[in-house]
Amino acid sequence: MSKFTKTDVLVAAQILDLIKQERAKALSKREWQHRIAGYGYGIRDTQHGQIVETLPHHVPVCTLPPELAA
Rank of each mutant, 00 (worst) to 15 (best):
M1A: 08
S2Y: 14
K3Q: 10
K3L: 08
K6S: 08
T7M: 06
D8S: 01
V9S: 11
V11Q: 12
V11N: 11
A12S: 06
A12T: 00
Q14D: 15
Q14F: 12
Q14C: 10
I15T: 08
I15G: 01
I15A: 00
L16Y: 03
L16M: 06
L16R: 01
D17G: 12
I19H: 03
I19S: 01
E22G: 01
R23D: 04
R23H: 02
R23I: 04
R23P: 05
A24K: 15
K25L: 09
K25R: 11
K25F: 11
K25G: 04
A26E: 07
A26F: 00
L27Y: 12
L27N: 10
L27M: 13
S28M: 03
K29G: 13
K29C: 11
K29R: 12
R30D: 11
R30P: 04
E31T: 12
E31S: 12
W32G: 04
Q33F: 05
Q33E: 13
H34L: 14
H34C: 13
H34V: 15
R35M: 10
R35A: 07
I36R: 02
G38P: 02
Y39W: 08
Y39A: 10
G40M: 03
Y41V: 07
G42V: 01
G42S: 06
G42N: 03
I43Q: 06
R44T: 13
R44P: 10
D45K: 09
D45I: 10
T46E: 01
H48I: 14
G49L: 05
G49C: 05
G49W: 01
G49I: 02
Q50F: 10
I51P: 01
V52W: 01
V52R: 00
V52L: 02
E53C: 14
T54G: 02
L55E: 09
L55D: 09
L55F: 04
P56F: 01
P56K: 07
P56W: 01
P56S: 08
P56I: 08
P56L: 02
H57R: 15
H58E: 13
V59S: 07
P60M: 08
C62P: 04
C62D: 11
C62E: 11
T63M: 13
L64R: 02
P65V: 07
P65Y: 08
L68G: 04
A69I: 03
A69W: 09
